[in-house]
Simulated assay, not measured.
Amino acid sequence: MVEGLTPPASNPDLDPVESGTYELGLDARETWGRWSLHAYETRIDDLIVLNSVFTPQNISESRIRGVEAEAGATLAGWLVNANATWLDAEIEDGPNEGNELPRRPDYSAQLDIDREFGRFSAGAGLTVAGDTYDKPANDDELDGYELVELRGGLKLAPDWRLQARISNLFNEDYETAAFYEQPGRVYFVTLRYQP
């Protein structure tokens, strides 16, 4: 536990969350691959968040507007998949009116490339997320981050594969919630059976 912090308290006065979403989207398959583009707006009543003393509370009115784009194709033998999200998430009522909703970065994106080489496979991924805030008061900024992943595999038999992965290759320090640091560089080795 972080010194000076108390454990979260309960709040018997919480109201249930209610929301409604409008979405408009386009999806297509082309000769080169596939793509999609979606825009949406979600209005939320009584969203539950933690306040500055870690007690759950309701935000009476909030709104999230977003655009999501995705594409996938095979380029020179490499399978390439990319997606990106842009958000405008705002508190619309109460003492924090006009502030950003906590833990929702303005943008995030992911790019993955993978390829098979006979019995071998190789790939890499890049994940990017922008700055955000941990609490509705917007006085505790969480920095954005960039993560790189490398992966590879070896087909041992028709149903058996050995896989290896390195996540957070550059050992970046980052938090998606205040005081909860995410793992540094992590190594995985998996023996997979899939009939």
Rank of each mutant, 00 (worst) to 15 (best):
L154N: 04
P16N: 00
D46I: 05
A9W: 09
V80I: 15
L24S: 12
E90H: 02
Y22S: 11
E97C: 01
E146Q: 13
V189H: 05
S36D: 02
Y40F: 10
K135C: 02
T42K: 03
A84L: 15
N96L: 03
Y174D: 01
E70H: 05
T74H: 04
F120A: 13
Q163G: 15
G123N: 05
W32G: 03
E92L: 15
E146W: 01
A82M: 12
D106M: 01
P102G: 00
A28S: 13
P102A: 03
E172R: 06
G33L: 08
G144H: 03
E70C: 03
S60Q: 07
A124G: 14
I64P: 04
Y174P: 04
F120V: 14
E141N: 05
A76D: 07
N81F: 15
I48T: 06
A76T: 00
L75R: 06
T85G: 08
P102I: 03
I91H: 02
I44E: 04
L87D: 09
L156R: 08
D139W: 00
L111P: 12
H38G: 14
E41F: 07
T127H: 10
A177M: 08
G98K: 04
A164V: 15
D134P: 10
R165S: 12
F117L: 11
A137N: 07
T42F: 01
S19E: 05
A129N: 08
D173R: 04
P183S: 09
D159G: 05
L150M: 06
L75Y: 10
V148L: 14
G118Q: 08
A69R: 00
E61K: 14
L156S: 07
Q110D: 14
S62M: 10
P95R: 10
A124R: 04
A89K: 04
I44V: 15
E92T: 09
A122K: 01
A178P: 02
V189F: 10
E30D: 04
A82F: 09
E141G: 05
E18H: 14
E175R: 06
L162I: 01
L126P: 00
S167Y: 04
G184K: 05
E30V: 15
R65S: 13
G152A: 11
G25A: 10
L111C: 13
N11W: 02
T127G: 06
Y174L: 02
G118T: 13
A177T: 14
A124K: 05
L24V: 15
S10V: 14
E100T: 06
L191H: 07
F120H: 09
D88K: 07
A9V: 07
Y193E: 03
D13C: 01
N11H: 01
L87K: 04
T85S: 09
R29Y: 06
G20Q: 08
E30L: 13
I44N: 01
E30I: 08
N51V: 10
E175T: 08
L37F: 08
D15T: 00
V17W: 01
A157K: 08
E30G: 01
N171Q: 03
E116L: 15
D112Q: 14
G25E: 07
R29N: 06
E97K: 09
L111T: 04
L191S: 06
E70M: 11
L14F: 05
L47Y: 02
V2D: 12
T6C: 01
V186R: 05
S167K: 10
H38A: 15
H38M: 15
A109T: 06
L126W: 13
E100Q: 12
